[in-house]
Nucleic acid binder design. Sequence first.
DNA 1: AAACTGACTGATC
DNA 2: AGATCAGCCAGTT
Length: 118
Amino acid sequence: MADMKAFDEAIWRVAATIPEGRVIPYGELARLAGYPGYARQVSKALAKAPKNLDLPWHRVIAKPGRIAFAIGEPAFERQKGLLQSEGVAVLKGRIDLQQFGWSGVSDASPLPAEEFFR
DNA sequence: AAACTGACTGATC
DNA sequence: AGATCAGCCAGTT
């Protein structure tokens, strides 16, 4: 990858569209933005995102449904709080996949749907 | 310039 | 389920 500037902006653009109450894995976000294999760089793009963009960074999680920060870490608590405040249950650092209906993956599922809920 | 680092993933045991 | 390991890839040492 040559220019990370374009990468960052592509990530920010897609991240901004993640609906409230839903989540998406880093790798999936990267793929949707056109950069498959760039999961690790997504975290960096989010970290450096301009504050005025007000991106829903908390809706971006690690697979399979796990908050990337270490449990107990301030950032972990912050993300957990934001998710819970919009109806996403978090148990032991994990998103409660049950709430989306394990069987009814179709429409009530988080953004990445099929892939995320394999 | 080689080594190390991490808000990642997938395979294996 | 939980731990480990190896790929991953740009940034930082």
